Simulated scan of single mutants.
Amino acid sequence: MKIIIVSDTHMPKKAKKLPSVLMRELNGCDLIIHAGDWQTIDVYHEFKTFAPVEGVYGNTDSEEICGLFRESLLLEIKGYKIGVVHGHGQGKTTEKRSIAAFGNERVDCIIFGHSHIPVNKDESGLTLFNPGSPTDKRRQPQYSFGIMEIEDKMHLRHIFYDSKV
């Protein structure tokens, strides 16, 4: 199973279309997970043309997106519990807010966004994954998104690239 993970697309403000490297990976994927800050519903509709889409809203999303998605989401995929949250809020770091969003719920992985900083690390058996942003790298050296592959085990990796064209 191949899952594309994105966050912080901020379209059309930061890009008029999805980057070509992301478009290539979307072909043939089984699921798309968006961790918020879509900006407009058009992004959701474009992703839906490739695969089913799951996601949450972020702090810059339109009322339409906030009405369609929740603040956090818990998915069970091939035996893995995956939490999804944008990670915005007051106090703490984005990572700590993301972990706190799932309280005592046992999850294998938390996907979050907000900071635009790519993260892929293990914290006491919990995988924390931020795909970065495919269109707004901020102070990062490259744009990025993530790919999760689940066969016998869950494997997460980033795709990094220099141009959002």
Rank of each mutant, 00 (worst) to 15 (best):
residue 59 N to C: 09
residue 45 H to D: 15
residue 39 Q to R: 13
residue 70 R to L: 12
residue 81 K to S: 13
residue 44 Y to E: 10
residue 40 T to V: 13
residue 79 G to Q: 06
residue 43 V to E: 00
residue 77 I to T: 09
residue 82 I to V: 10
residue 76 E to V: 08
residue 40 T to P: 03
residue 77 I to W: 03
residue 38 W to C: 10
residue 78 K to C: 07
residue 52 P to Y: 04
residue 42 D to Y: 14
residue 65 I to G: 02
residue 47 F to S: 08
residue 52 P to S: 11
residue 85 V to F: 12
residue 56 V to P: 04
residue 52 P to Q: 08
residue 68 L to D: 02
residue 80 Y to A: 01
residue 52 P to K: 12
residue 56 V to W: 04
residue 72 S to Y: 11
residue 75 L to K: 11
residue 50 F to K: 07
residue 78 K to P: 03
residue 50 F to C: 00
residue 54 E to F: 04
residue 79 G to C: 06
residue 70 R to C: 10
residue 65 I to H: 02
residue 83 G to D: 02
residue 45 H to R: 14
residue 68 L to W: 10
residue 81 K to W: 00
residue 75 L to C: 08
residue 38 W to G: 05
residue 51 A to Y: 05
residue 56 V to T: 03
residue 68 L to H: 13
residue 68 L to C: 06
residue 75 L to T: 00
residue 44 Y to L: 10
residue 67 G to T: 06
residue 52 P to L: 05
residue 60 T to I: 15
residue 61 D to N: 12
residue 76 E to H: 03
residue 59 N to F: 06
residue 49 T to D: 14
residue 71 E to P: 06
residue 37 D to C: 10
residue 55 G to T: 00
residue 63 E to Y: 13
residue 41 I to A: 14
residue 57 Y to I: 11
residue 71 E to H: 10
residue 66 C to E: 14
residue 65 I to N: 02
residue 43 V to T: 08
residue 75 L to Y: 04
residue 85 V to E: 00
residue 45 H to T: 12
residue 76 E to W: 01
residue 39 Q to I: 08
residue 58 G to F: 00
residue 40 T to R: 02
residue 57 Y to T: 05
residue 68 L to K: 13
residue 74 L to G: 02
residue 55 G to N: 07
residue 43 V to I: 14
residue 76 E to I: 04
residue 80 Y to D: 04
residue 53 V to N: 11
residue 41 I to R: 14
residue 81 K to E: 12
residue 60 T to V: 15
residue 77 I to R: 05
residue 38 W to N: 03
residue 47 F to M: 15
residue 63 E to L: 15
residue 55 G to C: 00
residue 73 L to G: 05
residue 69 F to K: 05
